[in-house]
Nucleic acid binder design. Structure first.
Lengths: 336, 336
DNA sequence: GACTGGCACTCCCTGACCCCGAGTGCCAGT
DNA sequence: ACTGGCACTCGGGGTCAGGGAGTGCCAGTC
């Protein structure tokens, strides 16, 4: 049904359309690509491809443009991975050098990804299931307001508010803090959660402080599961100013909502996933695609990262960049 | 030179143009506003206002639109503060209730500001000169990587990486951590900086750890001066999709750079400042205005917040909202 | 002297119209 | 199975005229 030539035609059309963003006709196709057939033949192929739903015409007597289904076929079967340029490789391998902590790694990664892909980049904070609690502190800020600070072995620092009993003095808070630290130090998030859940209430002031701190830590651990995402390269949207309604506007709106972003990145998965147009089940994003990948250790995905752009994007390059960045960040975090 | 009627005309033109975003002519003006003069008279006034540089014509035989100078006069002398609606007041006073820590306050503030002004909001992290260090911790992450965590009385938590000497054992790190905490607890940032600068090197391993921790804290205190900014409400730019090149694109580009944002917010100042068009000395932002205000205690500005939008904005409302939010956040932080 | 009505003029916007070119589908011929 | 040829379609761009909203100016009025 779809012989090699038809596939070649589809590939050529997508390549051309990505480059020019104009509907492409049979004549231009045979001129620009080495298809050793006449325009008439190509036209027949194009008609077939349109019947099958891989192409569409903006209007009669215009050239064809790919449909989401066409891009899908292209991504699945026709795209040859475009090797990264040496400059890109260099950028990727030097960009993270000297990153101080996890915040810094994430910030740099999002910039890097936006820069090499020239698209809007999204990076999810790593959720390291093997990470271990290195430190917990309960600090009094004011009379009845305390703050719990949690440090994991990945260098991630999170904090949460805790309500302290008014009658507790500084020493009791400090003691409770030390006990809390002793309880969970060295445990993974899951283990710590279980330990703290089993904690008995004590009828002393110190016990009340301890409970307050433990509650705050548990909230922190639970909250950590709904991880944060960071966005960058929004100015790359200006390259699509002509498609304001279909591309710029919906992306800007989506970027404002963490929840939407998390859904866009999709299920954790170690290899590069592409979601094209309507495949993002989000109204308004039907003209945009997401290229995402998990990162972390082999067989242990910590979080996702990816880019958002118009369906008319250069998939081979983007996929190569996303994969390279994901691998590099994973390796960097695993080592450091 | 500019009598009351001419000023009234200018005010009416700006009001109308802000509402309709279309050049406004003499006829429409007398119809829509109660100017008890004939269009011809108004025309003469408009001609004068144009000569003086307050108005301009997109082309002959079109209506007039305000210039930056016109907006400036309007803001300085003609704008009556528009009182907030009850709904806005309610939104402002409930939005922050239950905020956990400073991060949360800032995040909520930026959302609030974006929502009430329907513009892009920018909030700078509070830099509280009267804030006091509540807690410092030095935590070992890996063999030679440590992390310093700093908690201030405002609830702000910051962290920095520290290089630990390899030969230090866990007990030495813990001891050094305790000594470091004892040194700076209760001090302001400035005092702590001075104390740590005077610290003598000790030839022991523990001394080396202490020095490493102290260096990290000093870096943190210094870094804190170049405060972070948070942005929100970018989707409000979609309301100006028709002015993509003049408004949306430059704002998106500016938002990507912290430095630019900080410059946009301008010098610390407790009252509301408006910078119109070219008054922002940033190429490309010549069609956008910034409305900013400091927030904090009376006579002690902690940081700035504000909004960015097209020069053609509703200054009275925006200024009122920015001022109200700034006051409220200042009060909230001072209390909590 | 300040304001107004009237008038001629300017210029943009809109819609109608037409032409051109790129593209198509189809069919008969190799 | 492929190709050349042909009639057809349709959008984009260019031109043109009319209408409308606006202006500047001037002579007249209170």
């Amino acid at each position: 049904m779809l012989d090699d030539r038809k596939l070649a035609v589809l590939r050529a059309i997508i390549t051309d359309y990505v480059r020019t963003s104009e509907p492409v006709g049979s004549k231009a196709l045979v001129d620009r690509y080495q298809l050793d057939f006449s325009p008439a033949t190509i036209r027949n192929d194009m008609a077939t491809l349109e019947e099958e739903g891989y192409l569409t015409q903006p209007h009669t007597s215009a050239g064809r443009i790919p449909t989401d289904k066409g891009y899908r076929l292209f991504v699945d079967r026709l795209a040859q991975v475009k090797p990264l340029t040496p400059a890109e490789k260099r950028a990727i391998s030097t960009f993270l050098a000297g990153a101080a902590d996890v915040d810094d790694v994430v910030a740099r990664t999002v910039r890097l990804l936006a820069q090499v892909t020239q698209q809007v980049a999204i990076v999810q904070y790593p959720l390291v299931s093997t990470a271990v609690i290195r430190h917990v502190d309960l600090v009094r800020l004011h009379a009845d307001r305390g703050l719990v600070v949690l440090v994991t072995s990945t260098g991630r620092v999170t904090q949460a508010h805790a309500d302290l009993p008014l009658e507790a003095d500084d020493d009791q808070v400090r003691l409770a803090s030390a006990r809390l630290a002793a309880l969970v130090r060295g445990l993974t998030a899951a283990e710590a959660g279980r330990v703290l859940a089993r904690l008995q209430d004590e009828p002393t002031t110190e016990g009340a402080v301890l409970t307050a701190g433990a509650d705050a830590v548990r909230a922190l651990l639970a909250h950590d599961l709904t991880t944060r995402v960071v966005v960058g390269g929004v100015q790359n949207l200006t390259r699509f100013g002509d498609q304001f309604e279909t591309t710029v506007k919906p992306v800007l709106e989506a970027l404002e909502e963490q929840v939407v972003l998390l859904r866009l990145l999709g299920e954790a998965s170690s290899d590069v996933k592409v979601r094209i147009g309507h495949e993002n089940d989000h109204a308004g994003l039907s003209s945009t695609s997401v290229v995402a990948s998990g990162y972390g250790m082999p067989h242990d995905v910590w979080a996702m990262l990816g880019v958002v752009g118009p369906t008319r994007m250069d998939y081979p390059s983007t996929m190569a960049s996303v994969r390279a960045v994901a691998r590099y960040v994973g390796r960097f975090l695993a080592e450091g």
